[in-house]
């Protein structure tokens, strides 16, 4: 029997994978992919809670509206982030996070 706990554990493990990627990887594009994974993991937790918190016998659609907003914001974030990566690549000829050290004291 699949419970809400199963979905929450999958969501948590996906988030943890994304977090490990953001910390360990040095390629900015892959760091961005891991950020997307973390956002999707949060979406999975939200949809899980929405399904198992019934309002009038239906899933709680407030949570799914929040997921809709999250997906919109994530799409905007990817567009702007990738434009920043392209601008960075133009000035540094590299997508390694360690090539960007101008703000280092």
């Amino acid at each position: 029997m699949i419970t809400l706990g199963h979905y929450l554990v999958v969501s948590g493990m996906l988030f943890a994978l994304g977090l490990a990627g953001v910390i360990a990887r040095r390629n900015i594009i892959i760091v961005y992919m891991c950020l997307e994974m973390m956002l999707s993991a949060a979406n999975l937790a939200l949809v899980g809670f929405s399904r198992f918190h019934l309002v009038n016998g239906l899933p709680d659609y407030t949570a799914q509206s929040l997921v809709f907003f999250t997906i919109t914001v994530a799409a905007a974030e990817v567009a702007v982030g990738l434009a920043i990566i392209v601008a960075l690549f133009r000035s540094k000829q590299s997508v390694d996070v360690e090539s960007v050290t101008k703000l280092q004291g």
């Binding site: 979406n43 899980g48 399904r51 899933p59 799914q64 997906i71």
Partner: peptide, 8 residues
């Protein structure tokens, strides 16, 4: 889909 969230 398995959570009945077809639109999402």
């Amino acid at each position: 889909l398995s959570l009945d969230a077809y639109f999402i």
